[in-house]
């Protein structure tokens, strides 16, 4: 049966189109902004948060192509973003809103949360935008949502070591629980 959908494995991004440099820098200092975009919104609101799609829509740092050339990263390479509040591995991709040299944009979601500021300055609202960050190229993998939540909050694991938790068996892209799944509850033929 045909099912109209808006699934998209990866957001559409342009080609960086900047000649690679002979010399690249290791660490890029920049300003981090977070917020929503239409890919992240569509994926989150559909409820597909465990999927690879959400990882790519939300766990991606959109960068200026010149910044990407400085670091020597291509679209969908992995980068480590560090701030005073934490660190997280995300994808790098060319921003649709470039040029904005010196600024990166990560859509809101568990990945961005790991590095944004919780300071409200007594105004109820955390500072989600305008945070100083550093970006560097990395070989580490971008974690799926469930694995990231386990790695960051460790609510139901005894292990405290980040590296051990990161290399634990993945929860995968389907809900992990004991009980009936939706297919078992009714006669679903779609």
């Amino acid at each position: 049966m045909h099912y109209a959908n808006s699934y998209l494995e990866k957001p559409v991004v342009g080609d960086p189109n900047v000649a690679p440099r002979a010399e690249t820098i290791k660490v890029l200092k920049c300003m981090l902004n977070t917020g929503s975009d239409i890919y992240q919104g569509a994926c989150k609101k559909r409820g597909s948060t465990l999927k690879e799609e959400y990882k790519n829509a939300s766990g991606t740092a959109y960068m200026d192509p010149r910044d990407m050339a400085k670091l020597g990263v291509e679209n969908w390479d992995h980068v480590l973003v560090k701030t005073d509040y934490g660190e997280v591995v995300v994808n790098a991709a060319r921003s649709r809103d470039a040029p904005h040299e010196g600024t990166i944009f990560i859509c809101k979601g568990p990945w961005a949360n790991t590095v944004v500021s919780h300071e409200t300055y007594c105004c109820s609202d955390p500072t989600y935008k305008g945070i100083h960050a550093t970006v560097e190229k990395t070989d580490r993998e971008v974690l799926l949502m469930a694995d990231l939540m386990r790695w960051v909050y460790k609510k139901y694991v005894d292990e405290e070591d980040d590296d051990v938790v990161e290399s634990m068996e993945s929860f995968g892209e389907r809900p992990f629980y004991n009980g009936r799944k939706w297919e078992e509850l009714e006669d679903h033929d779609i």
Binding site: L50, G179, R180
Partner: peptide
């Protein structure tokens, strides 16, 4: 796109029980 994707939800991740 957002409204349509929300209404046509992802049943894999619907909390059923």
């Amino acid at each position: 796109r957002l409204g349509a994707s929300k209404v046509m939800e992802d049943l894999d991740q619907r909390i059923m029980v």
